[in-house]
Structures are given as C-alpha cells and as structure tokens.
Design a protein around this nucleic acid. Sequence first.
RNA 1: GCCGACGUAGCUCAGUGGUAGAGCAGCUGUUUCGUAAACAGCAGGUCACCGGUUCGAAUCCGGUCGUCGGCUCCA
Length: 612
Amino acid sequence: MTTYSRCKGGTTMSERYEDSYLYRLRHSAAHLMAQAVQELHPQVKLSIGPPIENGFYYDIEFAEPIHEEDLTAIEKRMKELSKLDQRIQRMEVTREEAKQLILDSTIPGMGAETSEYKLQLLEAIPEDQVISFYDQQRTDREGTLHRFLDLCRGPHVDSTKEVKNFKLMSIAGAYWRGNVNNKQLTRIYGTAFETPEELEHYLHLLEEAKRRDHRVLGKELGLFMFSPRVGTGLPLWLPKGATLRHVMTDFLQQEQLKRGYQPVVTPHIASIKLYEKSGHIINYRDKMFPFMEDEDGDKDTYILKPMNCPFHIEIYSSQMRSYRELPVRYAEFGTVHRYEQSGEVTGILRARGFTQDDAHLFVTPDQLQSEFIGVVDLMQTVLNKLGLTEFRVRVGTKDPSSDKYVGHDDNWTAATNAITEACDKLGLDYEVSPGDAAFYGPKLDLIIKDALGREWQMGTVQVDYNLPERFELEYIGEDSKPHRPIMIHRAPFGSLERMIGLLTEQYAGAFPLWLAPTQISILPIADRHFEKAEEIASELRSRLFDTRPLRVNVDDRRETLGKKIREAQLQKVPFMLILGDRGLEENTVGVRSREDGDLGEMRLSDFLEKLV
RNA sequence: GCCGACGUAGCUCAGUGGUAGAGCAGCUGUUUCGUAAACAGCAGGUCACCGGUUCGAAUCCGGUCGUCGGCUCCA
C-alpha cells in the first residue's frame, strides 16, 4: 500500500504526481464538481473525471447545452457541498454488485437512463482488477440521506471539506473515449490546490504566460502578422521576423554543409501524378489544400505541396546511382502547405503554410545506423545552440489497429528497430508511442512545451523503406546489381515557424545576441548627434558577428533619451549605444545592456571587443 | 470540423436599448534633453460583416467571417 505524504506545492521531489495528495485532491474536486452538476442538472450522464497536470476535468453529457455562465452556479454549489464535510468512502464490490449499483435508480444519478457511460466503463475493467466505487454522503436536518456515488478507481481525499481552493476554468467539447465517431460530451475543466495562495499563484502564472505568448510578442516585437485577407494560418513575416529566419537558416545551413549535405530547391506545386505515386493522394488528401483543377480539362491538375519528399526523390532517381555516391543528403528549406482544421491553427506554432528545415538522406542498409546517429548528433548541436534544454524524445511507431499506414510490416519492423537500436546506442532517454508514426514510416520526435504548457512536436527523424519502394529507387551496389536505398527524412527545427514561435516564448522575446533581430540600437541624444550616430552604425554594420553583418539601427526620432531607452528596452534590443556631446568630444559611446543596464562610457573598439 | 468564449480607433481597453469614449501610437507645433514615457493642439470609428426585432441597436435575436480555450489531428 502506498503511503501519501502531504506537502506544500503538491509533490515532493521523490514523489510522483500520481501518488501525491494534490492528485487525490484534484480527483476529489472532479467528483465534487460532478456531484454539484448532478444536483443542478439531474438528467446528466457522467462519464470520466480524472485529475490532469494542472487540475482536473469531468466529461458529462448534458440534456441542454451549458454555457460558461453556468459555471458560476456549479462553483457555488461545490463550495456549499464542500462545507457539508461529506465523508468520501471507498467501497469494493463484485462486477455483479457494481452493475446493480449503477442501475439502481433509487441512488441519485444512478439508473438505466443516466448510466450508459458508466456501464461501458465497467465492461472495460479487466477481469482481474478490483472494482471500486467512491461514495460521498450526508444526512440533512430533516434526516434525508444525500449521496453521490461514482464508479472510480480512486484514490480520493477523506472528506469533501478538503476540496476548497478550486476554480472552474472552461468548457470544451470532448469525444467519448477520444473518438471522433463517438458522441461529443461536454468537458468542464477546473483546477484545485491545497491552499488559496497556491491557487492564486497558479492563476497569476497563467496571466504571466499570456504575456510571453508568441502571438502577443510576435505583434509587439514586429516579427510576423496575419491578415484575414491573406487567409487563416498564413503568416506574413515582418522585417524583424524575417531576419530571425535568415539567422536561423544560415546557422543550420552551415552546420549541414559541414556534414556533407547538398542544397536543392524545388517548386511549390507539382502535378497530381507525383503525389499519386507517393501515396499522398490516398493517405493525406484531407490535409491538403484544394487541388488546382482545370475546369476545361485541358491542363493537368496541380497540387500545392504538403511535403517535400517526392521532389527530392525525383532528383535522386533522375540518374543512375552508385553505392559510391551514397549517402546522398539533399537539404532544402522547403515551404509546404497543409489545410489544418480551422480549430487547430495556433499562431505560427501551427500554421497552414510553413517552412520545414527539411532534408532527405538516401542510404544503404549498412549506412542507416551511422547516418541516423549523425542526424541525432546534428539535432543535439542545434538544440544546444538554441539553448533548448527541456524536451522529450518520442519514438512514434505504427498503431497496429489502424489502416492509415503504407508499406509492408517487414519494412516497418526494420525501420522501427533501426531507430530504437540507434537510440539505445546513443543512450537517449526516449519513450515509445504507438500510433504516432508518419503514414510512411516510424519516427523519432522532439517534443517541447510552449508558454501555456502545451506540447509541440519539433524536430523529427523518420526512417522510410516505403517511399523508395513506391518510387522504385535504386543504387548499383558493389556486386553490380541494383539495390534499394533507405530514406531518412529529417528536420532538426521541425519548422522555422514552430521553432521561432517556441523560442520567442522560451526567451520571452529577449533573444540571445546571435539571434536578436536588432542587436544594437544607437540612441543619439540630440539632432547634432545624428550624423555621428549614422557613422557609427555603418562602421558596426561592416563588422561580422557570427558570419553576418551586425544588425544595428539608429533611433533618430526627436524624442527624449529616456523614451528611446524605454522603447529599445521593450523591444528587447541586447545593446544600446548612447551618443551625446561627451561621445562627440571623447569619441566614446555610453553602453547600456538589456540585462545589466548602464555599463558606462567606452570606445567603440572596446565595446566591439566586449561583444565577442 | 466539433464544443465553449470573444470581436468597439493602428494597439490596450471602457461603454447593456436613447447623440461613440480613454490611454498609448499617429499628425502639427514647442522643447535639443545623459540611462525605462517632455508639453500642447489636431485628427482618427459603417462599434467584424449580413439580416432581423424595435420609434430607436455597439447593446437584443439569427447567420457569416475572424480570433481565443479545448477535443480530434499534426511540423
């Protein structure tokens, strides 16, 4: 039997969240909410109500749709029920007793009309597992027994009075058992903590997180924009954002050149024939933009590309390949378009048009493992340079029960083994996730959280035996006979859009010097300093930093110094150079850093030395 | 796509049935200033769009579009 320790902040270092008091508290909060809902709306059908990372939810089928204002009443009822100090008691029962309880219409909330989900849950419980209910009861002044009984594995806290620092957050639709073909239930999200301070603190953190949201910062810092006239999920990159893209692509390009990649460039559209051959038309059609079909039928049908691979394959297969050429590594910052569902588009973290830092490696079976390891090494270099340390590694494999995949099982097995063996060899800490493969092969993904704690798939490496087969790719081996190469698809950033969105949130817009769209802002104090300021700017722009000219701007508005500093600070410019009479006379600048404030007067050459 | 919420000036927001408001940004003028917002004046809006209810709609109702939080799906 597990013992539970109580501690401030929910969990101790050594304790899993699932074993914590906070976890039980939130689970009980879900039950308390269900009880309140059931009293206010007696015809509801309850389904499941688990604790989650920052709170809890309960999925409920309502007879009438409910709205956010209804949450106030539910919250109020929860507070009342909490104070009644109902004991929460566990009952273990046999399967038959469980069924009788669920169908017993004399117990509030139970009975055949409202228990379809509970019955399904009961059926899903394995034979060898204990079946338990949790019962919260009280007797009112008139002596009437009130009761909330729920089929539940538990565990829970001892009394409803422990659940008092909570807040209902939002309403959402959620499909029963996560399946789109099932009925959509109403999910109510809430959060709960042990103390009012912790609850306040959490709500405060949420507010803070909103301020580092990449959509907010993207607007404030002038990185990118959207226009309804252009279309949902189609970002327009502003000068500063475009600069960021260039810095990032230059960096990666150079890393790739060092590793023997070759650049290629391919079109944005292709004849439908290409994608029929690749299998995208069958497997990916619903994610593609509408096809460009000629009404008169005179012209071929064209497709806006959702992936770059078929183009790179065409280049590979355009001539005979010898084993001596392999591995062939074609790299392209390839812009693709995918028609994401309208409810899924999220700023530049999930856009409908985005640029992958894509490459395709064509390798012999002998080379597969070392090339795979080389790719993982590149990804580590990239993560390191970008300063990303918090990520999860996921190996996405085929879901055996789904038919959305192409290719033979042998190939899938070989590819999956290649990935896991390489990971084991590298000592990577990864988890295997069935159903998260691409339709053509298994993959290794890096998962990173955004400001609001949502997880995003970033970099990816995919081993693919299937497209080479569909396109009948070959190389001539040492034995003078044709062999089939294996493909590795890989993107260390994942996409520029998603990576920039994430970096923006990670750094709260204060990009490190090498990434900052404006690295230095020169702030002349009065008109008579403008000319010299421009001179210094050109001088700085002629210097290379990280292989690129320094990015410098001059704030030549007729504003006070205080205002110029404030705005440069809000724009998160790493360095400000203040130029006034002192600077003209002594040939110096006042240096101010974004982080450390005033660094004093110094000669330009000294400042430049300090930069590197 | 589905469930819920929101849409007022370039931005952030106030305005719940009776003549559209504030701060910042913009423009004009004054100020030429040393480390996070100078001062004054001016201008700026089919209250997302379309339709309805009403003597009268930013406000109430319906639809469309867009955005946000989820679900499903994904880089």
